[in-house]
Amino acid sequence: MAARTLTIDGKQVSADESATILEAATDAGINIPTLCHLDGVYDVGACRICLVEVAGVAKLLPACTTRVSEGMEVKTDSERLRKYRRMTLELLFAERNHVCAVCVANGHCELQALAYTLGMDHVRYEYCFPRWEVDNTHPLFGMDHNRCILCARCVRVCWHIEGAGTKNVSGRGARSQIISDLNQPWGTSDTCTKCGKCVMACPTGALFDKGATVSEMERDRTKLEFIVTAREKKQWIA
């Protein structure tokens, strides 16, 4: 384990060589907004919200998958970054039907919270208004594809924490969809263990406990980190 020294937003930071920019920043108390990242689950760098500027690199880099290096100069906030982050959010809001007023996750939604943080007071792009299904066939949980942002957190926890592989992404592009098994009603899945980790992982109101109504759906994300730490490090930190 070798340490690396870098600066993040002008602040001197030291981090292990295996650390990502996001981890180094979080340790140093610097907040980088994220969306597809989830503590305890491996990162995919898909949502592009955590993009940061690194001196000497022309491209913007995702903080969640980019490793620190010696002498790296990172900027996590700039007018340009804020503009791009806000646009990314607007694209998401326009893509499917995120109607906060009638959402189980209203008030407990990472997408919504991010919109507030980034000052997104309206969406400049035309709403697509697709018609996606709501899958209510599972005895315990529901899935509203209209609220899905395809971050694939549920897929990752289902594969890598629970190990069941029930969830995956089907199709591609804007027609991508989270599926259970062979794209069958969730309630008919042969592999779902009903563990509920996907529901815990979901940042929006797409996956929810049955019976939750508007604004009721809170999640306990620390559970996931707890399981992973217990499994990998044999440390049970409740």
């Binding site: 995919v44 760098g45 898909a46 949502c47 592009r48 646009m87 990314t88 694209l91 998401l92 326009a94 893509e95 792009y125 035309e126 697509c128 942002i149 395809l150 992404v169 199709g171 591609r172 592009g173 804007a174 027609r175 991508s176």
Partner: peptide, 21 residues
């Protein structure tokens, strides 16, 4: 590009849709 976007990242997946629109 819109049809061929893999859908993983948001700017390409949703941005091409809006640009096409």
């Amino acid at each position: 590009c819109m049809d061929e976007s893999c859908g993983k990242c948001i700017p390409c997946r949703a941005g091409t849709v809006q640009m096409h629109h």
